[in-house]
Design a protein around this nucleic acid. Sequence first.
DNA 1: AACACGATGGACT
DNA 2: GTCCATCGTGTTA
Length: 220
Amino acid sequence: MRLDQAFFRRDALDVARDVVGALLLRGPVTLRITEVEAYRANGDTANHCRFGLTARNAAMFGPPGHAYIYLCYGMHWMLNLVTDEAGVGAAVLVRSAEVVEGHDIVLARRFASREAPTLSAMTRRQQDELLAGPGKVGQALDLGTAMNHHPLYRRGGLEIHASPAPLPPLAVGPRVGIDYADPEHRDAPWRVADANSPSVSARKTLSPPTRLKPLARGAG
DNA sequence: AACACGATGGACT
DNA sequence: GTCCATCGTGTTA
């Protein structure tokens, strides 16, 4: 079942907590999201929108439920899920995932221009780390500028579907690679991961499974 | 027109 | 742990 636009028309942190376990689909590839980060409105000094609207971050100021995709370090394409109302610059960065469908294509993309192993030839650790990191997720989904602004809640192209399983226990921690932010935002636990997934980046700075905060999820 | 800098990942000591 | 590839973007001139 596709997530609808209303799902994304909320604070980025709430969306982040609810989107772990959701599925990303593009063609033959299906991924399960295992780790995300919230880049929030109201003065988050790590947010790409902290200096206002620019050509790069325009998608973040657009309608919720669309993709914001940008190039990082000149070579890695990052997928974000736009949140909040249009006009508010906020989004959730997809940092890690597990392959559900399309292992062979994902392996070919991940090992393009390198020696491509088969899944069974990889160690457990290599399998766990296959899509542990935002650049790896972008590679697996063959992201580029073509998918920037793409609506994820409609059929076609890149889609996002609700988790088919009960939502997992979560671990939280500070966001990665934002040392430039003010300490208040640099240290905020706005990174959220499936506490039971082996496919998570920078595990050392994640908490144990947390029961804090009754999250916005039914009668949980 | 020139420049500094990444919401990273892979190779290597 | 260290090093660095690589390029669009935002800033400055």
